[in-house]
Structures are given as C-alpha cells and as structure tokens.
C-alpha cells in the first residue's frame, strides 16, 4: 500500500549506501574500521523506527551503543584477568 514517506529502515539503508561509497575512497588499511562501523549502524533499526525521526541520529546512536557494549565487555575481560 502507498506510504507517504519512506520508512526508517529505507532511510538507514540509504545512509549506509552513502557510507559504503565513502568507504570505497578510503585507504585500504582504514577500510576495516569503516566496515565495523557500518555493521554497528544497523543494529538498532527497530527501536529507531519506533522513536526517532532523524535517520542520521539513529545510525550514530546505534554505533555509539555498540561501541559502549564493546568497551564494557573489554573492561570486564581486563578486570577478570
């Protein structure tokens, strides 16, 4: 059925596509970081669809959350060693 506006998922995919073309122009050794960021950007689409309006806010928040998670997991590992 017809929708008035594109969905959050479509908007986020558009941003990721943009980021992927950005990645093409990057130095080969830096690409791995960008790849990880793109992966992190997609993690919280469902929650964003529910509450956020700006897809850019959604992807950046998603990356931040996933980084925080990694950070905490690393801290846990270090303190247990």
């Amino acid at each position: 059925m017809g929708r008035n506006i594109s969905t959050m998922r479509q908007e986020i995919n558009a941003i990721i596509e943009r980021w992927q073309s950005f990645m093409k122009a990057m130095h080969a050794e830096d690409k791995q970081y960008m790849e990880k960021i793109i992966e992190k950007a997609k993690r919280h689409t469902a929650e964003s669809s529910y509450s956020l309006e700006d897809p850019l806010e959604a992807v950046i928040l998603s990356v931040l959350i996933e980084m925080e998670r990694e950070l905490m997991e690393l801290e846990k590992k270090c303190s247990s060693q």
Partner: peptide, 8 residues
C-alpha cells in the same frame, strides 16, 4: 505514518 512495532 508508522505501522505496528517490530522488535529487532
């Protein structure tokens, strides 16, 4: 213009 909630 949103549908039902779907969880990741």
């Amino acid at each position: 213009d949103r549908g039902g909630l779907v969880y990741q």
